[in-house]
């Protein structure tokens, strides 16, 4: 099986006052295409930083990240954005929907950025799949947390990504709604054959994945 994500000796530091704070140190792993992968660890272990680096939202100080065969460290910000639009989907803990766009427009957005025609039709189909056919023209502020996360799910799959990053997807939801969203996530993922990388501190959720990477203090815990 081919590797869709290859992380090699990653190091990331942030300035903290006059000092430098090392958030990640010597991180190396690979994710195979079509599998599910969980990154777990306590708060402050560097999970979200690692996700940001893997998705090309930030650049490492040292090391290399190859996403879909592209070395992210060699790409500029716009090229990384383009690669995300082509190959990556996202689900965030706080949903990150554009508040000024309706559900339908939020889901159409990744396709519109690709210049694809029929973006609205695809978005409509996806929103129906997540059970929001009657909420197409609602703004995020008019939707509940669970509904917003379902819109985010539909948006994440809209551009038929090769790889889906989910950052604490149930963190802002109650247990019941969270479980329903996770079921939906795994169902859609299986249906689309997408590789899934989940950042979570929920071990039950992590155990549903093929692989688990444990982080502690910015290092991989063996």
């Amino acid at each position: 099986m081919s590797k869709i994500l290859n992380v090699d000796q990653l190091r990331k530091t942030y300035p903290s006052g006059d000092q430098e704070l090392t958030v990640l140190e010597d991180i190396s792993f690979a994710v195979e295409t079509g599998t599910t992968f969980a990154i777990v660890g306590p708060s402050g272990s560097g999970k979200t930083t690692l996700l940001g680096l893997c998705a090309g939202l930030d650049k490492p100080d040292e090391g290399r990240v190859a996403l879909c065969g592209e070395d992210l460290t060699l790409l500029d910000e716009d090229q990384r954005a383009l690669l995300r639009n082509r190959e990556v989907g996202f689900i965030f803990q706080n949903f990150q929907l554009l508040p000024t766009l309706t559900a339908l427009e939020n889901v159409s957005l990744p396709l519109e950025l690709r210049g694809e025609s029929g973006a609205a039709d695809t978005a409509r189909t996806l929103l129906s799949k997540v059970g929001l056919a009657d909420r197409l023209h609602h703004y995020p502020s008019q939707l509940s947390g669970g509904e917003q996360q379902r819109v985010a799910l539909a948006r994440a799959f809209a551009n038929r990504p090769s790889l889906l990053f989910a950052d604490e997807p149930t963190g802002n939801l109650d247990d019941e709604t969270g479980s329903r969203v996770v079921e939906l996530l795994f169902d859609l993922n299986q249906e689309a054959g997408t590789t899934l990388v989940i950042v979570t501190h929920d071990m039950d959720l992590a155990r549903r994945c093929h692989q688990i990477l444990k982080l502690k203090g910015g290092r991989v815990q063996v």
């Binding site: 592209e70 427009e105 519109e112 950025l113 690709r114 694809e116």
Partner: peptide, 26 residues
């Protein structure tokens, strides 16, 4: 790794000028 774009620097963002205006309005 077949199926992935091998050189993203040669791929163009295809969103049109019209989309920019649409987004500005939205």
């Amino acid at each position: 790794m077949d199926g992935y774009p091998q050189n993203i620097s040669k791929v163009k963002n295809r969103a049109s000028v019209g989309w920019l205006f649409r987004m500005a309005w939205r």
